[in-house]
Design a binder for these strands. Structure first.
Lengths: 238, 238
DNA sequence: TCATTTAACTTGTATTTACAAGTAAAAATA
DNA sequence: TATTTTTACTTGTAAATACAAGTTAAATGA
């Protein structure tokens, strides 16, 4: 369905090393092979290897020390959602179950939308969906997503149960997340939110409003995420 | 007092362009000069220019588009604190006033500290301070900082009123922040917090726990930040 | 006029080369 | 033995070069 479109070499090495770190081949505190060794091992030159390593460092997988080498950073145990950088997913290998609360439907944008919209977006209307995400069978995220209805044929009829929205967008529409803005607030749980997240009314809830940029310059994903942080914190690196 | 230690060229260009963007020389949506033009303008080669631009992009100041150029991203109007990347300060040019609540004192680490500590850190004790930060005369942040007492002579007697802690550490001790971990929660305001932040008891407050890494591999800064997000949101980019 | 092709830009990827600077362990020296 | 120096690593910075690939506007053609 989709031409594989070979990844650049630095990206391939990035994926290999990232997988090795996630799989425990390289453990926390371990020294990665030196840049010159990686050059030999994977048949590329140092600038290319360095590009992989600096991306890994930017994503928090390793820390680089001049004169010493690249050291594997500890993997977060908490829920990482603050940075969507590249291929990193919100929760590592954790058992995160997702249920669809409101199936994707085409509708008008809310009148007081959280981010300003372009004319093109307003005209196109939006695809709306609601999901609830469970960690260890406890509802943690109540997730409202909006996508402008621009060149996304048949999206409302797709199965979202077990695959992430990002994955479907990547696999079927070549859409990649490139970056984004987000706002964070602490708010009291409304009746609806407290019901979905099994909380008492007015208990503090984390509210994230995000605008995600894609490889299509006029296509953005918006989401409003309510998060129960009683048991789990949101984790981030920088 | 401190040798200037010339910045690398890519870093200098980064600072120049960042200042131009902050000052409005390049406005939101503007196209920066092309990489080749920057090479000529500043007398460096493309790899060096590209290093500056990719750092700027990583910090959210610009977005790069293949075939088009580097476009100035909008500057956040809200409070940006989620990423401390490099030289970016929490609040751009805003009038943020800081008052010292508890002057720096040397003390033992709390017994149930929020992050695990090394033996060296435990032995050294910590420098503790509390600050409250006001935006437009409204208290927004209640900020508790901990630093291990490792090679920081006379720090408890320094003036912290108008300069940031980071600035003092950089100017007097050559300490630079390289990255860090953070956890975010929404919690109800305790009596103390509600008093400092002018909130009602149990109102939702954002709680950040951060561990900041420095250029000295065994020196970390810790902070516990309580934030009133009623009026302002916390802003982040990725 | 309108559609297509071409050309001239832009950034992206990759190699090669060189030296600077930080680290750590081996070697030399007191 | 204990200290200092040297050496051999490591990553950091920087240049010069080449081609790929995406974008845009001008030139060309029907």
């Amino acid at each position: 369905m989709v031409e594989p479109k070979t990844l650049p070499r630095y990206r391939r090495l990035y994926e290999i090393l990232r997988k090795h770190i996630s799989d425990g081949v390289y453990k926390e505190g371990d020294l990665l092979p030196s840049e010159n060794e990686l050059c030999q091992l994977y048949g590329m030159t140092r600038p290319t290897v360095r590009q992989s390593l600096s991306t890994l460092a930017g994503d928090g997988y390793i820390r680089k020390h001049q004169g010493k080498g690249s050291i594997v950073h500890h993997l977060p145990r908490e829920i990482g959602i603050l940075s969507v950088s590249g291929t990193t997913s919100a929760v590592g290998d954790r058992k995160l179950k997702t249920t669809i609360n409101v199936k994707p439907v085409l509708m008008q944008w809310p009148s007081d939308f959280m981010f300003p919209l372009t004319e093109l977006e307003k005209e196109s209307g939006c695809i709306y969906m609601e999901r609830i995400r469970f960690l260890d069978d406890v509802p943690i995220f109540y997730d409202i997503s909006y996508i402008a209805n621009i060149n996304l044929p048949r999206i409302t009829s797709r199965q979202f149960e077990n695959r992430s929205l990002f994955q479907i967008l990547r696999d079927h529409y070549h859409i990649e997340i490139k970056g984004g803005d987000q706002r964070i607030k602490a708010i009291p749980a409304s009746a609806k939110i407290s019901r979905f997240l099994h909380l008492k009314r007015d208990q503090p809830v984390l509210h994230l409003e995000r605008k995600l940029e894609t490889n299509y310059h006029d296509l953005f994903l918006y989401s409003s995420i309510f998060c129960n942080t009683e048991k789990y914190s949101i984790f981030g690196r920088f």
